[in-house]
Write a protein that binds this DNA or RNA. Structure first.
Lengths: 341, 341
DNA sequence: CTGAAAGCGCTAACAC
DNA sequence: GTGTTAGCGCTTTCAG
């Protein structure tokens, strides 16, 4: 497999491994002639440094482990994309892992990253109270947490999004358009982010003096379930005028359900979604969304990680909260509402 | 960083590194008592094997490098997802790379994979005549090629899709619905797959006695360009009745352009797309698509790769051609056509 | 059943 | 400028 090592190059050039190593790593202490000779031979023989061996000498590995919740979820895909962009620029390689939103897999993947002695680890955790952060701390490895901020105030790099505020602003947008019967669709198991979205929903209702109707809080545990839940919601007599989809991956299910039932957006029901996948702006009507800066999260996360790895003495940023942007499109209808607003 | 090594465990348990190594790797030749002691101490001390060191002894690395064209392209994302699924099952880790469809980056990424001494490499190449395959061959590393079949008949694992046939069937579907003026939207630089799609388009027209109109072959080099090209196409006097989008990533641009120009699907123009992203089935109308088995491609690719790595003596499958499926939905209108068909 | 020792490819400390 | 040597953590002969 390995074709040629520095040892062999040393032999071929009548030099020593040390000289070859220095020459190939652009260090000084090598004469021009020797350097050129070595480079020529290395090129000719197709020498390729063994990064494993290099890393074993205690340096960094140039490996960054990144854990996401689900590879084919476009939110995570964008994080991955941004992460890869920066990693590439910095000549780092990305080892990926997916937790599929299961805690055991999460731990297992981190374990693998650690076993490969990654120089840095970026994680999207489902549960921020997770012992994973403790593990990471203990291992004394550079890491940053993306997307979900740890509940305890742990000193680590953090790039997150204010889900509560985003949600508040989203629901507020619906209210400002005259809606008062606003349903929210959220996952059954409320992890921190989702929980915060729910809080934002509640706070918005409260701020505008709207009483929360438990019937309008729709929880579901899967995409299929979101479809069923939507169908069921539409069957109710006192149907909401607006639906806030608090989890992007449920979006397709909801839209499909509405299509199946011939419920028109926004005439029959207004829709606002958390997250802004590609399709949201090509649907007819285009869906009003709260757009998160996912790609930027990946970029900043890896940037922060690399800064930490290089540890260039500077006081490092600990936490970045990314702004989201409400993309106002045509899925929310302005309605007249009897009563004050 | 590294907290504890087998050496230290050996010291702690009054044994030798060898014994510890055997015990921790479930090899025999260790008494029950010693094994239990070692396991206990290892667990207590939070021992984590150094995979880099392990790999250096010439074994496999448990690393698989996978190169895709673009991380945020859903076709590749699905491949990645399928690949990750199988890699996980087999306790392999995925090192990812993206070529962004540039040849230099492609080579650079492969180089990195090789430097990490990956046990296997899976690649989605833009150009199958690529010297990359030669490099891979030379390096004597296990590899499989996904998506694009090499032009020369090279003996390597291959999972691909018959783009020509898929395209033929797609255009045939349009013809069978009475269309004769069928435009095709393809990238400017025809790599092999796209070229085959174009061939399929030509063959379908030819088979049904339709003369090809150069005006209806729309090439573009980017998503933005696809948007502009669509707008331009719509301005023509002898507008086509159907548009075959031969590249999925142009889909959103086309739809946006149609929306911008208030051109209705399928009343004003029929649409058929190569590839079946999530949004295709929630648009109104839902878009008729040729669905490729991307996730399955990732799965089978890694499976094949691992079979090769393990090299279990069996005669190995060399090539798998995955069937695509025409998802007939509502974006193609049946039209009456003066003249034969 | 267990230990000592070699060595994977590389870098770094130290001589010359 | 250059060579020698040690050693990263591990597995694997080879002896006992």
């Amino acid at each position: 497999m390995q074709k040629i090592t520095i040892k062999e190059i040393a032999k071929l050039t009548n030099t020593s491994v040390n000289t070859v190593s220095r020459a190939l790593n652009y260090k000084d202490g090598v004469s021009k002639d020797t350097r050129e000779l070595i480079e020529k031979v290395a090129l000719k023989e197709g020498y390729r440094p063994n990064l494993l061996a290099r890393s074993m000498r205690g340096l960094h590995t140039n490996l960054i482990g990144i854990l996401v919740g689900e590879i084919s979820n476009s939110f995570y895909t964008r994080i991955l994309d941004g992460a890869n962009e920066i990693a590439n620029q910095e000549a780092m390689s990305l080892l990926i892992g997916s937790s599929d939103e299961h805690k055991e897999k999460e731990l297992k993947q981190i374990d693998t990253f650690l076993s490969y002695r990654c120089s840095g680890i970026a994680v999207c955790l489902i549960d921020p109270a997770s012992e994973i952060i403790a593990t990471l701390k203990e291992e004394d490895v550079n890491f940053v947490v993306l997307d979900v901020s740890p509940s305890k105030n742990i000193d680590c790099g953090l790039i997150c999004i204010d889900n509560e505020r985003d949600s508040f602003l989203s629901v507020e947008e619906l209210i400002k358009n005259g809606h008062r019967r606003i349903a929210i669709l959220i996952p059954e198991l409320l992890w921190k982010n989702e929980c915060n979205r729910y809080m934002g929903y509640k706070r918005a209702l409260f701020s505008y003096g709207i009483e929360e109707d438990p019937e309008l809080v729709i929880t579901c545990h899967s995409k299929d379930d979101a479809y069923r839940a939507t169908i069921q919601l539409l069957g109710k007599k006192n149907r909401p005028t607006a639906l806030y989809i608090a989890k992007q991956s449920f979006g397709l299910s909801v839209i499909s359900a509405l299509m199946a039932k011939d419920v028109r957006i926004p005439e029959n029901i207004s829709i606002l979604m958390y997250g802004d996948p590609d399709w949201a702006s090509i649907l007819h009507p285009r869906i009003t969304c709260m757009r998160r800066q996912a790609r930027e999260m990946g970029r900043l996360g890896i940037k922060m990680l690399i800064d930490r790895i290089k540890g260039d003495g500077l006081e490092q940023k600990r936490k970045i909260v990314l702004d989201s942007k409400l993309m106002i499109r045509e899925s929310v209808q302005r309605i007249k509402q009897a009563g004050a607003c």
